[in-house]
Simulated scan of single mutants.
Amino acid sequence: MNITIISVGKIKEKYFKDAILEYSKRLSIYCKLKLIEVQDEKAPESYSQAEILQVKAKEGEGIIKNIKDGSYVIALEVKGKMLSSEDLAEKIQGLGLQGNSHLIFIIGGSLGLSQEVLNRADFKLSFSPMTFPHQLMKVVLLEQIYRAFKINSNEPYHK
């Protein structure tokens, strides 16, 4: 299975880079992983609604151009569906069995995802009603994808 994570913004902190590298290595035996970083847009301190939409649209363009046709797209969205680790594992396994060989997970910027990206998503996944920095979210997502593969392989990491 091919898994791509498209995220807005660069990872600068060494400790996040180290965690991302560790989970990327762990995942390499289960899937082909690709990480894509889309540039985040600068905006003023206080945003008008029009500026928010403009920033999200610009970031969304960068995301959309990296989505390959035929991919199953999962957008991380606070209003999405919450799943347990077991449910996520089942979803990933089910998608593979249905012939979806390329899953794309999308992590938005600080203002969220554009409507265009949300419309393109096949599934909207929420980890929590709380907001997380994209750097931390990437680590959490990678860990949960790794956990899903361990669960699906009946390996002991999960417990």
Rank of each mutant, 00 (worst) to 15 (best):
F132L: 13
S114G: 10
L136M: 14
G109D: 08
S153R: 10
F132C: 08
H134G: 03
H134Q: 07
L118D: 11
Y146A: 04
S110N: 13
G94P: 06
A148R: 06
I107M: 09
N154K: 15
M137Y: 06
V139P: 01
L136S: 09
Y146G: 04
L95W: 10
I107K: 03
H134K: 00
Q135H: 09
F123C: 05
F149Y: 14
T131R: 13
Q115W: 09
S128E: 10
K138C: 09
E143P: 04
E116F: 09
F149D: 01
I104K: 00
V140R: 07
P129V: 01
G96W: 11
I145V: 10
S101T: 13
V117H: 05
D122F: 11
G99I: 00
F132R: 06
F123H: 10
V117S: 02
L125N: 01
E155F: 15
G99R: 07
E116D: 15
V140E: 04
H158L: 00
F123T: 03
L136C: 12
V117I: 04
M137N: 09
L125W: 05
H102W: 05
F105H: 04
N100A: 11
L95D: 00
G108N: 11
G94A: 11
L141I: 08
N154T: 14
N119E: 15
M130F: 15
H134C: 07
G108Q: 09
I106F: 05
L136D: 10
R147M: 08
S126G: 06
G96M: 13
L125C: 03
A121C: 08
L136V: 05
I151F: 05
L111S: 00
Q144D: 07
N100R: 12
V139A: 07
L136W: 14
G99Q: 01
L111Y: 07
L136P: 00
L125P: 03
K150P: 06
P133G: 15
Q135L: 07
S101Q: 15
I151H: 04
I107T: 06
L113D: 01
Q98M: 12
I145T: 04
E116G: 15
F132D: 06
Q144R: 12
L111Q: 12
M137W: 08
L97Q: 14
E155K: 13
I107W: 02
H134E: 02
I104Q: 05
I104H: 02
Q115S: 14
E155V: 14
V139E: 01
V139G: 06
V140P: 01
S153D: 15
H134N: 01
N152L: 10
Q98R: 13
I151N: 03
N152P: 04
V139K: 03
H158R: 04
I151W: 01
F105E: 05
L125S: 01
F123D: 00
I145C: 10
